[in-house]
């Protein structure tokens, strides 16, 4: 028994440490990381702020726990752990000592507080009974799943729904300026602009976009982002929950402490859903790393092996 324990613990340590030993190129230290007395990054340290006092969401963010699986199976997980500095959970465990709040910062949420956590495969996996699909949407999703989700835009190197980008195992980077916030997604090379200059959402029937048109404003320490102008064929998750041109997405983004980025997403789309719903996505900061180029089209061969649609 003792020998078994030694072996088991050794395996766990080896697995946990091995990616660190094989850190990827390029490696460049993140600046201004709050540190603990033991020299480790303090993930529960104060929320960084910009000169105008707003929470600074800038950074590289990995999908946090609770957002990676479910739906069709064990699902997706975060990328390599070696460069992910966050703890196992984006939010501290219930009962953990509350971190000292930063000036004006929202306290870190308890693990079980807030809206149900979404997963990459199933946005509604945490909602009892699932998402409130209209009959049209339920049938469309059923067909997409029956076809093994082979027409998810991701599988054809096309832009994927914003909620898939939020939940994708590949990381994302936020660049924050007072008038414009840019989100770069490693997945499918996604680029998103959030206009912070006070402009309204367009009402001139704009050309629908894969990522829609986003405007944002601050409500306290929450960044509230409204997005409309979507295409009619958005996949919100891998299982094919739809979003259409009648859809609107409202995100409340916050950084409750140094290591945590949290987004509550409300979807309204009368064509697809009988009522609005809200789900949460947790991210944790990645240190000493950056996005890696991902050009999907360079050698795409998988789709030629997909099975024909089931009828």
């Amino acid at each position: 028994m003792k020998a078994f324990l030694v072996i088991a613990v050794s395996i766990m340590l080896a697995v946990a440490i091995s990616p660190i030993l094989l850190a990827q190129w390029p490696d460049y230290p993140t600046a201004a990381v709050p540190m603990l007395p033991n020299g480790q990054p303090n993930m529960e340290g104060p929320t960084p702020r910009t000169p105008d006092g707003k929470p600074d969401l800038s950074g590289i963010w990995a999908l946090g726990r609770g957002g990676g699986g479910g739906g069709g199976g064990r699902g997706q997980r975060g990328q390599g752990r070696g460069d992910v500095a966050g703890g196992a959970n984006a939010a501290p465990p219930a009962g953990a000592p509350a971190p000292a709040p930063a000036r004006g910062a929202a306290p870190a949420p308890a693990a079980n507080a807030g809206p149900p956590v979404a997963t990459f495969f199933d946005l509604g996996s945490g909602i009892q009974g699932g998402l409130p699909y209209t009959p049209w949407a339920a049938e469309l999703r059923r067909q997409r799943m029956a076809d093994n989700m082979k027409d998810n835009p991701d599988a054809h190197c096309l832009p994927i729904g914003l909620t898939q980008l939020h939940l994708h195992p590949q990381p994302r980077k936020i660049i924050q300026t007072p008038k414009l916030i840019v989100m770069l997604y490693e997945a499918q090379g996604g680029v998103r602009q959030i206009f912070m200059d006070g402009r309204p959402l367009p009402n001139n029937d704009p050309q629908p976009w894969w990522y829609g048109y986003s405007i944002g404003h601050w409500e306290g320490d929450d960044l509230v982002v409204e997005t409309t102008g979507f295409r009619d064929d958005v996949w919100l998750d891998v299982n094919g929950s739809p979003l259409t041109t009648t859809g609107k997405m409202t995100e409340r983004m916050r950084r409750p402490n140094y290591g945590t980025f949290q987004t509550d997403i409300t979807i309204e789309d009368p064509k697809s859903y009988t009522k609005p719903f809200t789900v949460r996505v947790n991210h944790r900061v990645m240190l000493n790393t950056d996005l890696i180029e991902f050009i999907c089209q360079e050698n795409e061969k998988s789709s030629q092996h997909f099975e024909p649609p089931s009828k």
Binding site: M12, A16, G80, N148, D154, A155, P169, Q170, C296
Partner: peptide, 21 residues
């Protein structure tokens, strides 16, 4: 726990669903 840690470190097949291919 050991298996969970090992699985968590695996890279994800994000491009397409496993069953599609």
């Amino acid at each position: 726990v050991a298996l969970a840690i090992a699985c968590a470190a695996l890279p994800a097949l994000a491009h397409h669903a496993f069953n599609a291919e």
